[in-house]
Structure formats: C-alpha cells, structure tokens
Nucleic acid binder design. Sequence first.
DNA 1: TTTAGCACTCTCAATATCAGAGTGCTAAAA
DNA 2: TTTTAGCACTCTGATATTGAGAGTGCTAAA
Lengths: 342, 342
Amino acid sequence: MLTERQKFILTLVIHEYTRTAAPVGSKNLVEQYNLEMSPATVRNEMAVLTDLGYLRQPHTSAGRVPTEEGYRYFVGRLLRETELPDATRRMISHQFYQTRHDIDEWMRLAASVLAHQARAASLVTAPHPERARLKHLELISTRGRQVLMVLVTAGGGIHQRLLTLPEPVQQEQLSETAARVTQLLQGKTADEVTQMRGQLHGLDEDVVDWVVEDMNQADSLTSGEVYLDGLTNVLAEPEFSASSEARRALRLLEERSLLYDLLSRTVLNANIGGVQVLIGGEGAWDELRQCSMVLARYGAPGVVTGTLGVLGPIRMSYGRAISTVRFIASLLSDMVAESLGD
Amino acid sequence: MLTERQKFILTLVIHEYTRTAAPVGSKNLVEQYNLEMSPATVRNEMAVLTDLGYLRQPHTSAGRVPTEEGYRYFVGRLLRETELPDATRRMISHQFYQTRHDIDEWMRLAASVLAHQARAASLVTAPHPERARLKHLELISTRGRQVLMVLVTAGGGIHQRLLTLPEPVQQEQLSETAARVTQLLQGKTADEVTQMRGQLHGLDEDVVDWVVEDMNQADSLTSGEVYLDGLTNVLAEPEFSASSEARRALRLLEERSLLYDLLSRTVLNANIGGVQVLIGGEGAWDELRQCSMVLARYGAPGVVTGTLGVLGPIRMSYGRAISTVRFIASLLSDMVAESLGD
DNA sequence: TTTAGCACTCTCAATATCAGAGTGCTAAAA
DNA sequence: TTTTAGCACTCTGATATTGAGAGTGCTAAA
C-alpha cells in the first residue's frame, strides 16, 4: 500500500514524463511543481516506488521513468476521471447533429474528433449487429442478367451485392420478389432464415440463398469498415522517431485481421459504457509494446454495437484519452439509439 | 541529346540508387554491372549528366544521385514499359473475380494489391459518376417518424440517409411514394430533377428535395471513400526514417481535402488508360517533395470514373509501379464496365 | 577517345573528452 | 523517526578529433 505522498509523487512523475518524454529527476520535479520537500526526500520515495516496480531507471544515475505497472496503478487507482469541458462537449455534439444522418459520416467524424482530442491515432468500427436481422430487401435490375441486391438490416446497415441471374428478369418481377421475400423474412436472422427454406422455389429460393450468404457475412465480425484517423499524430511522438517501432504499431491498425483479433480478444467482452485501457500491449501484443490503447464499445447492447478507441504511446495522456473515448462512445450510442427509433 | 551510353549509365545509376538508396560511384557501378569500361570513363559520362542536370552530387567527392529531372527523363524516355508477369496478372484477376461483387470489397482489394505489388502506399477512390443519375430509390420505415432513404445511382453507387418526417407514415405508403418517385426521376441528374419540381406536392415533393440534396452530394468530388493501404511500406524506406518527412507525406493521404485537391489538379484531366507520374511533388506540393506518385484513372469514360495510384519515395521502382497501376486500373475498369452491364 | 595514376576532398564511424544531471549514502538537523 | 544537506560517484549526450574509405577531377599516356 502506497502512502499518500508516494501516490502523489508517482502521479507527478507520470505527468511530467508524459509532458517531456524524458526521465524525470528529483531536483527537476521539485522545481517544476514547487514541492514543499527537498529533492532528497523525493529521491527516497522514488527509490521505494522503484523497488515496488512502479518506476524504473533507464540507467544508474538517470531520472525515473514509469513502468507499465506504474501506469496500471495510476490508471486503476490514482487517475480521477474527468469529463471533457462543457464547451468542448457541446461543440462536438453540435458537429454530430449537424451531420447528415449517415452512418458513414458519423464514423468518419468520430474518428476525426477522437484523433484530435486525444492527440493520438484513432479507430472506429461501424456498428455491427449482434445478429443481423433483415429489415428490407431490394432487387434492382441493372442490365441484362445483372441484378443489384441491396439488403438493409435492422440497425441501418446496408449491404450491396451484384448478382448474375441465369436469365433476364423484368424489374417489375424483381420488385415483387423482393417484396415477397422481405415480407417473409423480415426480422429474421440468417439462422432462422436457413431453417425455413424448402418452403420456397424458383427465383425466391435463389434470392433467399443469397440473402443468407450476405447476412452471414454481415454477422462475421470481420465485416465492415474500420475508420482510422490521426495516424500522423503517433508518428510525431518522439519515441517513434526511430520509426521501426512506429511501423509495427501502425501495421496493427492497417492489417485488419490483426486488428480484429485484438478487438475481439479484448473489448468484445466489455460493457457498453466501460472503457478499457491496454497498456504496452499487456504482454500479449508484441506490436503494441510501445503503445497503449484506450478502447470502448458503443451502441445498443444486444442489438448493434461497435468499437472505438485511440492508440498512442505508453506515455499518452490517459485522462484526456479516457474522457474523450468515453464521451464519443456515449455520443455514438445516443446517435445509434436514435436512429433505431425511440 | 544524350548518347546511348549516357542513357545507359543514367539508367544504371537510377537502378542502383533505387536498390541501395546511397549515392552511386563510378567504380562501384562498373563492378556491380561488369561494365566493359573503366571507372574513369563512367566518371566522365557522369560529369556530363551532372552538367545536364540529370544527376547531382550530394557533396564534392561523393557518388551521384539522380535529380528529379533525371527521373523525369528516365520515366519519359528511357523506361520501357513492361507488363506484370502473366502469372501475377492471372493471380490478381482471380482474386478480383472471386470477390463478391461488392464495390467496397473491390476497392479494398485494389488498394491491397497495389500496395503489395508496388511496395508502396496505395490509394484508390471509389468510382464516381461524372453526373450522378438516379437509378432507384427506396424508403424504409425504421420506427416512428424515422425513415431510411436508400438511393442507388447508375453505376452502382449507394447513398443512405436517415430522414425524420413531420409525421409517421406507413411502410406501404412509403413504398408507393418511392416507386412513384423512382418512376418519375429515373435516369435524371440532380439538375434535371431540380427543373421538374413544382409538378409535385406533399410527401413526394419533400422526398424529391432530399433526393436532389443527396445527388448533389454524390456529384461533389469530395464525396466517397478513399481506400488506403500499405502506409507502412513507405515508412520502411530509409529516407523516411527521419520520420518528419514521412509525416508530411502521410498527412497528405490522411487529410482528405489535401488529397482531393491533389487529385483534382492532376489526374482528373488524364485519360482512362493513361498513367500519370508525379515526381517530387513537381514543385507544387511541398508535402511530396520527397515522394513520387503514380496515378491513373479507371472506369467508364463519361459515366463513372475513379482514381487510383501509389505513393512512394522518389527513388521508387517506377517500372513496377507503373505496370501495376496500369494493370489494376484496367482491371477495375473491366469490373466497373461489367457491373454496368454489357 | 579511353584509361591509368594521383592528389585532393568529404563523409562517416570510432574515440576521446567533459559538463551536467541524477543517484545513493551518510550524517546532521528537525 | 523523518527530513535534508552534502558529497562522491556514475552515466549520458554533446562536441571535438582523427583516420580510413570512397569518390572525384585532372593530366598525361595509351
């Protein structure tokens, strides 16, 4: 158990290190923050914190740097959660409500705001149904045997696909089929639809097959866009000027399969509203050894959910990141809820 | 006018420099390529090329580095266009034809293949109608007064938007309205639609207004996604290890407004099938001073077109980049043509 | 016209030096 | 018992020095 003063000093060291990215020494700390104690006292406390594994010295006779353990303690126990300033929140909300009601646009905006506010790279995944349920189906003749199938799922997801029919079909007949199938399958999941095949035949049957295929695809986690922004923010950080570390981290964001793996293993079991903090890859992701992520889910629990978060250097400002992520997540949840109808 | 030998040496210098990223000296060149002449001869020729502005010396008594002018000469006159190996082309085609017929998926795949083949960052913009023409309109009730409007334009573009009506309307009535409006406006551009307002009233009128708004948005160049890939490829290049240069270049790709400006000023007046090469920003784009881009348009001329290309260091392999860009552009053109019906 | 020879230049890596910042310990002060 | 002043010691990072290596341009011979 740390004394109050030790907690205080740990906080200060972390704060100072986030600011300067350089090991922080006792004398410096006392001067910077006008502490009421001598550097020697600070040194003693620092020695204790070092023994406990919360700080470490890059070399004998250098200042102290927070360890990952130190950050975890800080984030878990010392960081008092703050909210974004009222003005900022209003400004951000305003931007969202000004946007056309277009999911795509929301995602982009969310990524952009996250990146700016947290001054880090940001990622946002589109809201994703727990199990896609059909809301509406449309078949649109393009030319000859080509047909564009547009599938709307509950929650507002849209999936399109170009089909080639065995023989040309009039638009009118296509519309009828679409209407019939919509009627029949509305509100059903892919699995439920699969069970009620056999009662169908001809064009309808083929269409239903395609619908199932599309909905299964929609169900798979790896579908859908990931919106990134602010990648250059993380490149600007001094610890990434060596660039090879930066590459590894950015590759994680670029390589969708890696990213999905990460998201599915961490954030999927989190609650809506809860913010998860991943410090230094938590030993599991080598690419993130130099990075931290702050992640949250948003959406309507059990219906559609998405993930969003930021990625920055370990010495990122967790306070700012967490409050931003939390706010944007709740904002997006509201937007989604509203678009579902309320 | 250069002698054949000078052209040959320029080519070799460029080749060697792309390979090693270090200034290339006469002796080294002779050894590497088993030239039938002495280093002194090569030195003399290099001196001529330097006088002509095609090579330069970073410092007295260092090897030679190609200037931008040198690259331009090379790309314009010396580079004999090659095609990707047959096997590679078949493999890539195969990947495309295996994909669901989903524009989104194609774009992603194109970006990915470009990045891999050219070993550079890639960008692909979705095909964009010269002037969007309405193909189909759908109105889908979500709940209460919320209505999802789905608008399909000729060329397969899909735009969605969430509307709030003044009062609840039944799905049935919405479908009727949608069908009516589709009937009326099919094949029309936003401008043409605007001219025929006044003949309408009630819900129809509102819907038409929204359609016009959406189609105008679709017309504006800045709409639509830009697909990026392989950003980490360019970070891996030694000239960007200093990272601040890399940041500037990547910012161009991230900041959509900058990117659109670039694309609109360069590639929009290019022909389909033509590949444009931008070397060192051509003096106009400061962010690209250290970079080159190889760009092309694809699509059906006069109907829908998109842009794609790669971004790499100035010393990228232009041969590989150009042949890849050309191939993918023609492939995407085929895909688009096919999806338009043929 | 080409090439061998040579003096000269410039970079880059390795090495040495040194001020500055920080530490831990001890002993005195509170 | 806790805090602090003092001090010897350590390590880094900036700066300067040096020397090998690579490359050049020029001249004169082939």
